[in-house]
């Protein structure tokens, strides 16, 4: 996608100080490109550190290739940057455990997260990867709200939680999938132990 055609995500020009008016270009793993204001980027600790380390000038931003975000697709990244633009300039919550965390989902965020659970999953994953604290909080709050008033059986269905038996079966399967040679060595070792051998080697 060309620079000119890259989507600019809802930008409130008036809210951006003149000296900070720089837009970075990012590319998702499916080659979708986004232009995001410097102030919005500050919501993501990961991206903020990245652009600081790059030390791009305004010309660099336009002339150099877009910064690739390998692990996130365009659909998810669009939501992430929409969220960052809407909340740009807001204080980033610090969770030091000193005060109870009370998370409420603002109207904008609720609308933004009116998506299927597959996309919500990717959004949480992206918020964690990009270290966007408040986006992680509100998206996790949405996940927590799914549990309200449910019975254990309902929770199992909602969160696709395996039963103890299924966990055991998965564990056994993982053991069986071990390297066959390692299993042979293990069995030989057990056999020698049974025969009372002093040394395996």
């Amino acid at each position: 996608m060309s620079v000119e055609n890259a989507p600019v995500v809802d930008v409130d020009e008036a809210a951006i100080p003149v000296e900070k008016k720089m837009y970075y270009r990012f590319e998702s793993n499916d080659k979708k490109e986004f232009r995001v204001s410097e102030l919005a980027i500050q919501q993501s600790e990961t991206l903020n550190r990245l652009v600081e380390a790059m030390g791009y000038t305004s010309e660099d931003v336009e002339n150099k290739p877009a910064i690739a975000i390998e692990n996130i697709d365009g659909k998810t990244l669009k939501l992430v940057f929409q969220w960052c633009e809407h909340h740009k300039g807001e204080a980033i919550p610090v969770d030091d455990g000193s005060v109870p965390k009370i998370v409420e989902i603002p109207e904008f965020d609720a609308k933004l997260m009116d998506i299927d659970n597959g996309l919500l999953f990717k959004l949480i994953w992206a918020a964690d990867y990009l270290n966007i604290v408040q986006l992680l909080n509100v998206s996790c709050k949405k996940v927590a709200n799914m549990a309200q008033g449910k019975t254990p059986a309902q929770l199992r269905r909602v969160y696709l939680l395996p039963s103890d038996e299924e966990d055991e079966a998965a564990k056994r399967a993982a053991q069986e999938a071990q390297d066959p040679r390692a299993r042979e060595v293990e069995e030989e070792f057990e056999e020698r132990k049974r025969q009372g051998g002093n040394s395996f080697f």
Binding site: N117, F121, I124, C140, V143, A144, A147, K150, L160
Partner: peptide, 29 residues
């Protein structure tokens, strides 16, 4: 019913979600 694969998330995200559970829901979980 909505389905959400909670245990496929990184632990930090699972913890973040569980912190938002009401205590009754947390115990039911």
């Amino acid at each position: 019913e909505p389905k959400f694969p909670l245990f496929k998330l990184p632990f930090l995200c699972i913890e973040c979600a569980l912190l938002e559970f009401h205590v009754f829901d947390l115990l039911t979980f």
